[in-house]
Computed example of a mutant assay.
Amino acid sequence: MAMVSLERWMTSPNLFAMDKPTLLILGVQLESEGYPNVLHRVAALQDSAHFSVSKIHYSAWATSTQRSAGLGRVLRNFWRMLAAHCAVLFCYLRHPPIDCIYVPYPGTLLLWALSFLPRRSKRVVVDTFISLYDTVVLDRGLLRENSLAARLLFLLERRALRAASINIVDTEQSASHLCALFGLRAEQVLAIPLSTDEENFIPVTEQADPARCRVLFVGTLIPLHGVQTITAAAALLADRVDIEISVIGDGQQAAELEQVLAANPGCLNWQRQWMSSQELAGAIAESDICLGIFGDTEKTQRVLPLKLYAYARVGRCIITAATECTERFSAGVDYQPWHTVPAADPQALAQAIVELADAPAARDELASNAVRFYRDRLSNVAAQQQLQAVLLGGT
């Protein structure tokens, strides 16, 4: 079994600069390109000149725990999760007092356990990102809302989030939702944009092909993505042989996509196997139009998914649902960062694709606007500045 990663005292050069605030990164996160917000946010903090940084980390899951199926996989994940939390908590209890603790996503179980233990810091900042209860129960419906398991999950997460000084989410709408759902004070929840992979995802000028328009959707096929809306729009565009719609990803609603493709694929094709960051960046760069989210769930209104960050960073024309979140993010800018359509409206989506497929100049303008919007509102520099201020004690 892998040992706990301790990057503190003698292993951290910043720790000798005693005039700096001390920061402990405490977590069970998987630091891989599959979780870019975690990977790049933690790396930036470790390189920060503003803190003396130490780190206690043990990944709660790994590739090896996913190779089996059924009960074997469940047991592997359970024991790995239990070992990770126990190891991190043991080292935490031996750690001297610190100015601030930062807990990367996922931190719910760790925070819940910390709520019963002596504090090593008066300030605990957790990257909550998304609520476990909201995702499992309210959004995906994997547990019945009135079931005992759902109720226990709610109580566990409420205690965990209330134990944090600051909970970080990525949108103002998610912050308000978290406060309402768990009874948190408004000052306990702050919105900071996600951190992303800016090494593989770089601005690339579109190489338009006059004979075809390449439309791309990337996602995990969960309800808020609105897969049905995309497939229905593709069916409406079946006679447009110059429009190609590609889907990359797999997930909860994959079976529905399978049925559509088996019946009448039309202009739709599916790359089910997930790609590396480099491959995804390449796929986005080769597209002309990129699709965001179109679901009719409540959660659709309050999220700005990571795919929109990637599309904007590369510089592609984006079509996504008009939501409270997209309206709030684009408020105050004098340009249009994306083209919006009503949620869960295949006709409107199909019409928007046709209009932009037939108007390369409009696509170019939206692509340029997306790059500008990423730089102004979504970049890692912008997010890191906000996070550092929170860790230092500001809001």
Rank of each mutant, 00 (worst) to 15 (best):
L257M: 09
Y309L: 11
Y335K: 14
L306E: 00
I222R: 04
C91W: 12
D239K: 15
N380C: 06
I319S: 00
E286V: 10
L261P: 10
A43M: 07
W270T: 08
F78M: 11
L75S: 03
Q336T: 08
G70M: 05
R158M: 09
S287Y: 10
I192G: 06
L132T: 15
D345M: 04
H85F: 03
N77H: 06
W274Q: 15
E286D: 15
I25L: 15
F373Q: 03
E327V: 05
Q278Y: 04
N200V: 02
V333C: 07
A383T: 10
D47V: 04
R363L: 07
Y58Q: 06
V314F: 04
G27W: 01
Q259S: 15
N269S: 08
L138Q: 15
S121R: 03
H339V: 12
V354E: 10
K299S: 03
T220F: 03
F294P: 11
S32R: 08
I245W: 09
W112F: 12
M3T: 09
A382G: 08
L280G: 01
R119D: 00
L308A: 09
L30G: 00
A382C: 09
T11Q: 10
L143G: 11
K55A: 00
L387A: 04
W9T: 10
I192L: 15
A191R: 00
V88A: 05
G251E: 12
E7F: 13
Y309I: 09
C86E: 11
L39D: 03
V103F: 02
L39Y: 09
V247F: 15
A262D: 10
A83H: 14
P97A: 14
I230G: 14
E7K: 13
W274E: 07
D250Y: 11
D99S: 05
Q188P: 14
R375M: 00
L93Q: 15
L181K: 14
N369C: 08
T300P: 09
T231R: 10
N14W: 11
R363A: 06
R41S: 13
D19V: 10
L304T: 03
V189I: 08
S64P: 03
A281C: 14
W79D: 07
R328L: 08
A83D: 14
C267T: 09
A352Y: 04
G249M: 14
P21E: 01
C91G: 00
V74Q: 02
A348W: 05
F217E: 11
P337C: 07
T340A: 11
L143E: 13
V137H: 01
V215E: 13
P21R: 01
P97R: 14
K20M: 03
C317H: 04
N146G: 02
L392A: 12
V28T: 15
G292Y: 01
L236Y: 05
V247P: 12
G249L: 14
A60V: 01
I192S: 05
P97S: 14
F373I: 02
N167R: 05
T326N: 05
I243M: 06
S287T: 09
E198W: 00
Q336V: 02
A350M: 14
F90L: 05
F116E: 03
Q278W: 06
E365F: 01
A62K: 04
L237N: 12
D364L: 12
Q385L: 07
L194G: 02
T108E: 02
A84S: 11
D47I: 02
R240A: 13
